[in-house]
Amino acid sequence: MKRWQNWLQLGNVLILIVTAWLLVDGMPNILRWRAARVAAPVKRPEAFDWVDPAKGLGIINFYAYPGAIAEGETTSVCYGVMNAKAVRIDPPIAELSPSFNRCFEVSPERTTRYTLTTEDAKGRTLSKSFDLIVMPEPALAPSISYFRVRESKVDRGDTVHLLCFATRNATLVGVDPPAFPGSQILQGCFYAVPRKPVTYTLTASGTFGRKVKRQLTVAPSGPVEK
């Protein structure tokens, strides 16, 4: 019984010592630690350092994927900017706004250089460019299926020829000497009333500046064989 009382007295003494330490030294230290923790700035993960305003205006990325396509195909152009007020791409593609990551589809007819320009609130600008390669597709080259005299007739002493043509993959068709305005018509006919032999040159233009030509000579008496 006496031993148990001794242990109880010892426990009470220890409680008094701990309480005194908390009141004199421990509690103020705990309060100071908590205050310092609240006041300390929260450190952002390094993965998000590029959004820090202190880093200023910047271009995070600007690219096309895939960076080379065949004629007629589509690819994605993506961009990302930081601390920007405005952004634009030349040649113009779409209505843009500052974004950390945005993509859109394009389908240029030929190899094109795209330039991204971004501007901050102080008027400072940054630019970045890349070339999107477009490879010609032989199957899409322009061609002339035929260019010939369909019929001839005499009207009031003049020979009138009906010249007809057909093309494929042409974006513009024209004839010289001019008989009709250049247009995107792929197939058609026109009249010719020559007073002497005349050589007409039909030109079919396609993408990448590709052109194909065919000639036809007509005379008052009819087509001239070559």
Rank of each mutant, 00 (worst) to 15 (best):
T125F: 07
G58M: 07
P92H: 04
S127W: 07
D52N: 15
A70G: 06
G72A: 00
F100N: 02
T118Q: 01
A54Q: 15
G72P: 03
T115G: 07
D52E: 14
E95W: 01
D49R: 11
R113D: 11
T112S: 11
R110C: 00
I59W: 06
D49G: 00
I59E: 07
I59P: 04
I69D: 04
K85R: 14
V77D: 06
E71G: 03
L126T: 07
V81M: 07
L126N: 12
E119S: 10
R110W: 07
L96I: 02
F100P: 00
R113F: 07
Y114A: 06
F100W: 03
F100H: 06
G123V: 03
L57S: 11
K85C: 01
Y65S: 15
G72L: 02
A70D: 03
S97D: 00
P98G: 01
K122Y: 06
A86C: 04
N61D: 15
C78H: 12
F104H: 03
I60S: 15
G67R: 14
M82L: 02
S107G: 05
P66H: 07
P66D: 05
R110T: 11
L57V: 14
A54R: 15
S107A: 08
T118N: 03
T118Y: 03
A64D: 08
T115L: 11
P53I: 08
L96W: 01
T112N: 10
T115K: 14
Y63M: 15
E119M: 11
D120C: 02
D90F: 04
I59R: 07
R124L: 04
S129K: 13
L96K: 01
E73T: 00
T112R: 08
G58F: 08
I60H: 15
I59Y: 08
T125P: 08
N101A: 12
K85T: 04
P108T: 05
I59A: 10
E73A: 06
S127L: 08
R110S: 11
G72W: 02
S129V: 12
G67F: 13
E71D: 06
F100T: 05
E109R: 03
S97K: 10
T75Q: 03
S76M: 07
A68T: 12
T112L: 09
R88P: 00
A84I: 12
P91H: 08
P108H: 03
A68N: 08
S107L: 00
G67S: 15
L126W: 11
E105I: 01
F62C: 15
T111K: 05
Y65D: 14
N61T: 15
T118E: 03
E119H: 04
M82V: 13
E73F: 01
W50G: 00
P108M: 07
